[in-house]
Structure formats: C-alpha cells, structure tokens
Amino acid sequence: MPISTSPPPELVVHDWPLPYEARLNHRGLSAIDLVVIHCTELPDMAMTREFGERVHYPQKGTGNSGHYYITEAGEVYRFVANDRVANHTKDWNTRSIGIEMFNLGRYPHWGDSRHQAFTVAYTKAQIQSLLALLRQLKHDIPSLRHIAGHEDLDTRLEPASDDAKIMLRRRQDPGPLFPWEDVVPASGLARLRP
C-alpha cells in the first residue's frame, strides 16, 4: 500500500505560547528526528502552565517545558513552536519534540521512595489525540523517525527525599501504564532506547 503524502485528518491544536518562547533557540525542522513522551506528574492545567512559565535559566529568561500538552479529555495545547528548542529532556532537546501527557504520576511525592508507583491509566482520548498529533508531526517534519520516553533518555539517579541512602530514577515518565505496545506500531516511529 503506498504511503499517503496528504495531510492527516484535522487535529485541533490550541496555541498557548509561553511568554519566553521567542527567547528559545531557533532550529530548522530538518534537525528534528525524535519525539519524547513525558508525563506531567501534576494535578491540573493551571499548575502545569505555572510550572512551564517559571524561569529556570535567568541568563536567557527561559524555563522547562514540552512543546505539546495533551489533557485527559484529549485536548492538545502547544506551548512551544516546533522550530524552537524547548527544555524538556537533558541532552536531547535540539533534536526532539517534547509531548507532555497529563497524568498524576507520582504527584506530589516524586522523590519519596515510598510513593514511586504510577496508578492512573492514560485515557483512550489522550492516546487517540497523541496518535493524531504524531501523524501531523510526521507530515510536517519528514525527518521524524524515533519516539522515546523521558525515562529512556534521562537515566540519572538522585537520593530519595525520605532516605538519602536510597537512589531513585529522576525521570520515570511516561511510566509503566503508558501503552507503548499500542503507540509505537500505530505511530510509524521506531522506539529509541540508547
């Protein structure tokens, strides 16, 4: 069956650029070959937006954020344009698009060794919107080839907040409840696990 070069069905993306978006480094779309899937590990959009607007790098006036956010209801928000380098995955930002899936994850006990289980499943609406977004990105960015979880790319350890002798993975998202077995084949992207 020939691969279609026509645009995918209409995807509604709500543009909500971060205040510092124009200060993020510009890049050509051909530099992008990777999508990184994240989990917000926050309870709502208000807190997620506030976290994204925080300035963590005063010299540039920028912070940490993904490009896209997908709510439990499947709504898609764009905080950073594709041609800007968002700060979402250490050492992988220049070549990747970051997609944040709303999910409580380990909130609010991220660093507590007694609360490391992910207990909330991703919704069908979220996964459908993610797949529609991935189709749109593949159409818009022909160099896109790979998909990875934040947990695949950032394997650093840090002491647990409740016991410094216990070392925990800093990043465990999107976590064990993310349906990789469905997303990878449907996305047409190869899973990258360095």
Rank of each mutant, 00 (worst) to 15 (best):
L137P: 01
H88W: 07
I97L: 08
R135S: 14
S113I: 09
R114A: 15
R114S: 13
Q136I: 06
R114I: 06
Q128K: 14
H139F: 01
I99K: 01
E100N: 02
H109G: 13
N87H: 13
G111H: 09
S96C: 04
Q116V: 03
F102A: 15
I127Q: 11
V120A: 15
H88C: 08
K138V: 04
N87W: 06
D83V: 05
T94P: 14
I97R: 07
L104P: 11
L137S: 10
D83W: 03
L131H: 08
W110S: 14
W110L: 14
G98R: 04
F102C: 12
N93K: 03
H139N: 02
I127A: 12
K124A: 14
A121Y: 11
V120N: 14
D83F: 07
W92D: 02
T89C: 15
N93W: 00
A125M: 11
Y122G: 06
L133N: 08
S129V: 04
N87T: 09
S96K: 04
L133G: 09
A117T: 12
I99L: 00
H88F: 04
P108S: 06
Q136E: 14
S96F: 04
N103T: 01
F102W: 13
K90M: 12
K124R: 15
I127C: 08
S96L: 01
Y107L: 10
R106N: 01
A117K: 13
V85Y: 07
A132Q: 08
Y107C: 05
S129N: 03
I127T: 13
N93Y: 02
S96E: 05
S96A: 03
D91I: 07
Y107A: 11
T89W: 14
M101G: 04
D91E: 10
H139A: 03
W92P: 05
D140A: 10
A132Y: 09
R135C: 10
G105Y: 03
R135P: 08
T94S: 12
L131Y: 02
L131F: 11
V120Y: 15
P108D: 05
G98F: 03
F102R: 13
H88R: 02
I99H: 00
Y107T: 02
D112I: 05
G98T: 00
L133W: 01
D83T: 06
G98V: 00
I141Q: 01
Y107K: 02
R95G: 02
A86K: 04
D140F: 03
K124F: 14
N103D: 02
F102L: 13
R95K: 05
